[in-house]
Computed example of a mutant assay.
Amino acid sequence: MWKLGRLFTMFRKEIMLAWAVLRDPRAPRAAKLVTVLAALYVISPVDFVPDTIPILGWLDDGLIGYFLLQLAFRFLPGELLQSLRARVGTRGATK
């Protein structure tokens, strides 16, 4: 059960980091665009796997949203990503 709690905490911090990317004027437009696309995919009723399939539909939204956020973070310069991670309080090195 504690693994699920850690996963939720990690995902919450990634969402806070995505919000920081959207608000920071130094962030490139590509990073902001992919962040918005991730949010739109998660709330969109059109999915690869419909949300009417209980577990797979939600897993589809979460995984694609997470991977889109990771793509958005790759568009950020290394020092900006580290600065935003420090501000939000997440750990992680730039890849």
Rank of each mutant, 00 (worst) to 15 (best):
L37D: 01
I55L: 15
I55F: 14
A31L: 05
S44D: 08
L4I: 07
E14S: 08
Y41V: 11
L84D: 06
G78Y: 00
R85V: 01
R26I: 05
L22W: 00
P50D: 11
D51R: 15
D51W: 03
M16G: 02
V36H: 05
R23V: 04
K32W: 00
I64E: 01
L84I: 08
L59A: 15
R23I: 03
I64A: 05
K3D: 08
G65L: 04
W58R: 15
D61G: 14
P50A: 07
S44V: 06
G62K: 08
V88K: 08
L80R: 03
V36D: 00
S83E: 13
L56I: 11
L81C: 06
R91I: 07
T94L: 11
P28D: 09
R85N: 02
R26E: 14
L56E: 04
F48T: 13
I64N: 00
G5A: 15
L80K: 07
L76H: 04
R74F: 00
V36Y: 06
P77K: 15
E79D: 10
V46K: 09
V46S: 06
K95E: 12
L37Q: 06
A86V: 05
K13E: 04
Y66L: 15
F75V: 03
F8S: 03
L68K: 04
I53H: 11
S83M: 09
A20F: 03
